[in-house]
Nucleic acid binder design. Structure first.
Lengths: 140, 140
DNA sequence: GAAAAGCCGAGTAATTTTATCGGGATTTGG
DNA sequence: CCAAATCCCGATAAAATTACTCGGCTTTTC
């Protein structure tokens, strides 16, 4: 039940882009340095995020990445779906989808995963990047 | 964000034990056959569940496994914690625990994982094995 | 035209998960 | 007592996934 490093670092990097929104494109090396991450690993992550339309890129010197939309309009769930695949706790259950799997107890356990999936989506789609950067220190 | 086969099959097997509660111990081979699972893989799972005190075993001929407590008293969350480790979406955040990880955006993203973790626990600790076996067919 | 940056397919390394093996220890029933 | 059924369990192999690297290309600025 863990989020992968890709997902975790992707959200982290998106948070930086949210903090720097309006500052013009931020080069990847800067983000990598700021978060102590491998430049090349982040590159893989950003490739996916760009192709999914969550960020835009500017090539060449003075280039870099920026959010494609303001932080208020990007949900954490959007980012995680791109990097982790659909928010489904078990394989036979993509979001929206509900295949039976032919096993005896299948129909019995399905309700568990459906409820879990829906709650997870609820939380993650309720938090935008704007919420993340406005988190008060005493949130805990 | 997936539950492992261990977790999924563990819950499935526990569901069978719940259905057969009061029928005396059920041999593992029967459960494996019923769910089309490898006997030896299930054995690993049951070892963990027994050590965690969720099931009891009877050795020898006519032996098998049974729930240690009635289905009403075993939560799906209990089973998953044994098989998947703590219900924590990211490493730096065991249940109850909240270590800082020293990265710049750390404190900002932490709230996401805390909320997610708490909601997941809420769902999984709210469903008992009794609920699972009483699931109406139109649950969806 | 050199330096700064992104683009990207392919490949390797590390880790985790899944599954198997082989032999033991207990219990039942004959 | 013996044979069959069944759990016990450490070790390890196989497979899958995840994390990360490489190398070379393209685009833009100065």
């Amino acid at each position: 039940m863990r989020v992968s490093a890709k997902g975790e670092n992707g959200v982290r990097a998106m948070t930086i882009l949210a903090l720097e929104f309006r500052a013009g494109p931020i080069p990847l090396r800067e983000i990598a340095a700021r978060e102590g991450l491998s430049y090349q690993f982040l590159e893989q992550i950003f490739l996916l995020l760009r192709r999914a339309g969550l960020i835009t890129s500017v090539r060449g010197a003075k280039g870099g990445y920026a959010l494609a939309r303001p932080p208020e309009e990007i949900k954490v769930g959007d980012v995680l779906r791109v990097l982790e695949g659909p928010l489904a706790p078990v394989e036979c259950m993509g979001e929206g989808n509900s295949d039976a799997c032919g096993k005896i107890a299948a129909c019995l356990t399905r309700g568990i995963w459906e409820r879990l999936r829906d709650r997870m989506a609820e939380v993650l789609d309720d938090i935008t990047l704007a919420d993340v950067i406005n988190t008060p220190a005493d949130y805990t």
